[in-house]
Computed example of a mutant assay.
Amino acid sequence: MHKFLIICILIFSMFFLSSCSIGGSRIEMLNKDNDEIEAENVLTHVIDAIKYQDKDALKTVFSKQAVGDADDFDDGVDGLFKFIQGKINSFEKTSGPTVFESNDHGRKKKEVSSYYYVKTDSQKYFFLLKNYPVDTDHPDNVGLYLLLVVKAEDKNDIYDGDKKILYDGDKKISHAGIYIPIK
């Protein structure tokens, strides 16, 4: 009887430890870590471009689709450089990233939205980045699609449907390029 109990415990342990559905798969956990690293890399490129006022470097982070869909991408870059006051000291993740993935018979698309506070020596900002690291059907869409920046104290306003920044009531509003809704 004692041997039977030990064997049952061992078998149960083997199933529990090798199960992918309990607590999420290992692949999912690794992908989540990769998504966070990718999001932070994109933010780092954006911050470096802001620090050095490098329009070309900033433009290379964005997808061709975003640059084409933006109302006036170059004006957005200039507006961002003017909006960020002071020297950037640090950043911290607020939540996420939020990841949406699809794979339809090998046609893959991934959207990663990440959220950060970026601190300068004179102000704290909220950055929302929407990035497409994978889009096999539309390769021009690969890259950063949206960089939304507001002062940290205005963060909640961007989700307010009455303010019509990201939502008009319950309807989502799409933006491309650099978007600074509250100046």
Results as ranks from 00 to 15, higher is better:
residue 76 G to Q: 02
residue 142 V to R: 13
residue 162 D to S: 15
residue 83 F to M: 06
residue 29 M to T: 12
residue 24 G to M: 05
residue 115 Y to W: 14
residue 89 N to E: 06
residue 121 D to F: 09
residue 146 L to C: 09
residue 96 G to Y: 09
residue 115 Y to M: 13
residue 42 V to L: 03
residue 50 I to L: 02
residue 55 K to L: 04
residue 88 I to T: 07
residue 32 K to L: 04
residue 135 D to S: 14
residue 169 G to D: 14
residue 4 F to S: 00
residue 128 L to N: 03
residue 99 V to I: 14
residue 125 Y to Q: 05
residue 50 I to G: 01
residue 62 F to E: 08
residue 48 D to G: 06
residue 94 T to C: 01
residue 58 L to E: 06
residue 140 D to K: 14
residue 65 Q to G: 06
residue 143 G to R: 13
residue 66 A to N: 05
residue 120 T to Y: 06
residue 76 G to A: 05
residue 49 A to E: 04
residue 80 L to A: 00
residue 175 H to R: 13
residue 13 S to V: 14
residue 44 T to D: 10
residue 77 V to L: 11
residue 81 F to R: 02
residue 1 M to G: 04
residue 169 G to F: 15
residue 98 T to P: 06
residue 17 L to E: 05
residue 55 K to A: 04
residue 151 K to Q: 02
residue 72 D to N: 12
residue 142 V to G: 13
residue 134 V to P: 04
residue 50 I to T: 00
residue 73 F to T: 11
residue 40 E to A: 15
residue 177 G to R: 12
residue 21 S to T: 04
residue 84 I to C: 05
residue 108 K to G: 03
residue 56 D to V: 10
residue 47 I to V: 12
residue 2 H to K: 05
residue 95 S to P: 07
residue 118 V to Q: 00
residue 116 Y to V: 03
residue 151 K to H: 05
residue 70 A to D: 08
residue 63 S to M: 08
residue 123 Q to M: 15
residue 86 G to Y: 06
residue 51 K to V: 12
residue 106 G to V: 07
residue 182 I to H: 09
residue 175 H to F: 06
residue 8 C to A: 10
residue 143 G to T: 12
residue 115 Y to F: 15
residue 176 A to P: 04
residue 58 L to V: 00
residue 19 S to M: 08
residue 137 D to V: 07
residue 3 K to A: 09
residue 60 T to W: 02
residue 159 Y to K: 10
residue 37 I to Q: 11
residue 34 N to R: 15
residue 179 Y to F: 12
residue 38 E to R: 07
residue 63 S to I: 07
residue 158 I to R: 08
residue 86 G to N: 02
residue 59 K to W: 11
